[in-house]
Nucleic acid binder design. Structure first.
Lengths: 152, 152
DNA sequence: CATCGGTACTTGAGTTGTCAAGCATCTGCT
DNA sequence: AGCAGATGCTTGACAACTCAAGTACCGATG
């Protein structure tokens, strides 16, 4: 009935709609995109609120290059700051500032709310859970080629 | 257990991985992206292999602008061609050429295969089906703002 | 201790999409 | 007929990301 390509197309369509909804609300309410929120969430969950930029890239499914570019504006507006590693001069951390952590909390609340509304407009709560469960196994492979982190 | 925002993040991650996998195989084998395949699929399914550009935009979840830009290369390499509407001089159709239809068939086979492999690496067949079913209700709302089709 | 390969990051150029504005055309109202 | 507003499409400016190449640094090996 459902062939896999068809499922892939639905996944693309659903994802696009979700991102637009999230972006629109987050931009209006907090001036920041869903992509930015994902960065802040990862940093917020990390030990000491900071990560190496490479690890952040892997966690986000971006290239190192993409992280450099995405972090620029966040540093400029003071949500994230650069930190050096005293042991290894190659690495630069991205660290959440106090301001960043504050905004993160507000944004998380908004985003929870939007996601809740968006999913429950098309699914029951139990269905959202099983969707989450089904998607869990599917994120691992298929990172961008360049500068993959420790996985050889 | 699974809050909706978390499900949203998983959805994003899974989608990103899927698109990269599909893009990589399709580009290597046929020189054409997943985004392009989506266009060809919609045209192939449409009556007479053609659609108004606005309708194509709505079907793809893009803006009219995005469609103009995406169609450019496909016209240049002869997979799609412009057709005028004799009744209404505003509208231009995008129509699949014979070459385009041929390539579409080959690409569909590749894409089916990739999607099959990708999903079944993390799900059973039955789970893929239920994933497809869950996603069905979720694609409707949240189109781009500009030039929405007939929905007022 | 020189150097060679791997790792972390940045930067230039290209791609794909958005939004805002503009043009041509159609439609309904008077 | 004539005009106002909607509709279809394209274009310029910009945003986010990729790849390829470049810089800087680390660590092991001769």
């Amino acid at each position: 009935m459902h062939d896999p390509l068809d499922t892939a197309l639905r996944l693309t369509r659903a994802h696009g709609a979700l991102v637009r909804q999230l972006d629109s609300v987050l931009s209006n309410r907090h001036g920041i995109s869903y992509a930015d929120l994902q960065i802040l969430l990862h940093l917020g969950a990390a030990e000491r609120g900071r990560m190496r930029r490479v690890d952040l890239a892997a966690a986000l499914g971006l290239t190192a290059s993409g992280v450099t570019r995405a972090l620029g504006p966040l540093e400029r507006i003071g949500l994230v700051e650069r930190e050096k590693d005293p042991r290894d001069a190659r690495v630069a951390y991205a660290a959440l500032t106090a301001t960043g952590r504050g905004l993160l909390e507000q944004m998380t609340a908004s985003a929870e709310e939007v996601a809740e509304d968006w999913f429950t407009a098309g699914c029951t709560g139990a269905e959202v859970d099983s969707l989450g469960r089904l998607l869990t196994g599917l994120g691992g492979r298929g990172r961008p080629r360049a500068t993959r982190a420790t996985d050889a």
